[in-house]
Simulated assay, not measured.
Amino acid sequence: MKKFVGTGVALVTPFKKDTSVDTEALKNIVTHVIEGGIDYLVVLGTTAESAVLTQQEKQLVIDTVVETNHKRLPIVLGIGGNNTAAVVNELTTTNLEHVDALLSVSPFYNKPTQEGIYQHFKAVATASSKPIILYNVPGRTASNMLPETVLRLANEFDNIIGVKEAAGDMVQAMRLIKNAPKDFLVISGDDMITLPMILTGGSGVISVIGQGYPKEFSEMVRLALAGNTVEATALHYKLMPSIDYIFEEGNPAGIKAVFELLNLATATVRLPLVEASVTLKEKLRNFTERLNS
């Protein structure tokens, strides 16, 4: 499980201006984050706009990341949804040869009970040949996977190895950290509270901002994990404005604007998302210039 301690980044899917998948830009981004010192790659999560990708495009993204990574870092693949049978089918039909673990989001829109969430992940865990990281993100799913449900799954299924906790609730995060089985990973899914989560016993982060500024963000995480609170806090506060900015107009519009500034990819997103505004791009430009000065 140590391979998933530290900084993972939820990779975007870069598009050309015509909204086709830009594999060259994706290669550039993967190289950028690896050279920036992050610890693992997360492919086809929410930030990847996976909801608007075809199955063929998803496979193209996987193949491009695997080829560019060249076995340098562990890969986590997002497979989840609100149709349990479809998720199980995808798990059993996808080639997972180059995948180290799966990230599976709690069912969205349906608003299942805690028992429904448990039964969903029981089916997923039973079907999976790979370790699973649960993903709780109530702001997108409209239902909160409570600590009791996460811990029930963690204690009953050996291949459920962690949770990406993105409720933005430090009390909930601390309840998970305090009561989790030994070696169970409680991973921040919220860039802004990554530092306090690590300092109270969390395992790291699956980050959005970390792919824009991987050197600085992954160093903050390493310092926090080492207990170097003063230096970690200084870096956190230095990066803090950018975290606000990238989510100001929705994800991944903000982080794609960062990649445009860094000349790694266009800022293009697919409808129903729209590109970051000129105003937001200017804020990000000013921040990036200050960070690099």
Rank of each mutant, 00 (worst) to 15 (best):
V12F: 01
G250S: 12
T23H: 08
L199P: 14
S188Q: 06
M192E: 12
I198L: 03
I198S: 12
D244Q: 11
V5P: 03
L73R: 13
I161W: 01
L146D: 03
V205G: 00
K283P: 13
T31V: 10
V221P: 11
V5C: 09
Q55V: 12
Y245F: 15
N83S: 14
K130V: 10
A51K: 09
A173E: 01
F121Q: 12
E260L: 13
E35M: 01
L134W: 11
E49R: 05
N82L: 01
P272L: 04
A166Q: 06
L291M: 11
I117H: 01
D22K: 13
A123I: 12
L223D: 04
L11D: 00
A234I: 13
E35F: 00
I209V: 15
I193N: 08
T19S: 14
V5I: 15
G254Y: 00
K111G: 00
I34Y: 10
V88W: 03
P214D: 03
P112R: 04
K215I: 02
I34R: 12
G78T: 03
K283A: 01
E90H: 09
I132A: 11
A267L: 06
V274H: 06
V61I: 15
V61W: 03
D39A: 09
T94R: 11
Q55D: 14
L235S: 04
A226L: 12
K164F: 02
I243L: 04
I193E: 06
F15D: 04
L11A: 05
N286I: 15
A276I: 02
L223K: 14
I75S: 05
V171L: 15
T47D: 03
M1Q: 08
T46E: 00
E97A: 14
Y245M: 14
K16P: 01
P252A: 00
R285G: 09
V186S: 04
A173K: 05
A234C: 12
P138W: 13
S129P: 09
M220C: 08
G162Y: 02
N286T: 15
I246R: 01
K238D: 08
R285M: 06
N69P: 03
E67K: 12
A265R: 13
L73P: 11
A127N: 11
D39H: 15
L77F: 08
A154S: 10
E156F: 04
K178Y: 13
M220L: 15
K178V: 05
L41E: 05
V52K: 10
G6K: 03
V21H: 08
A51N: 09
L291F: 06
G189S: 06
P14E: 11
L103M: 13
G81K: 08
L73Y: 10
D169C: 13
L103S: 08
I255W: 02
S207I: 06
L41D: 12
P147H: 11
D169K: 10
L96D: 01
L26C: 06
R175H: 14
I246D: 05
V230N: 14
K111W: 05
S293Y: 05
E57T: 00
Y118P: 01
G201M: 06
T268S: 13
I34D: 02
V65Y: 03
N286F: 11
T54H: 07
P131T: 08
Q119A: 05
M192P: 00
K71T: 12
T141I: 07
G116M: 05
N292Y: 06
E275C: 04
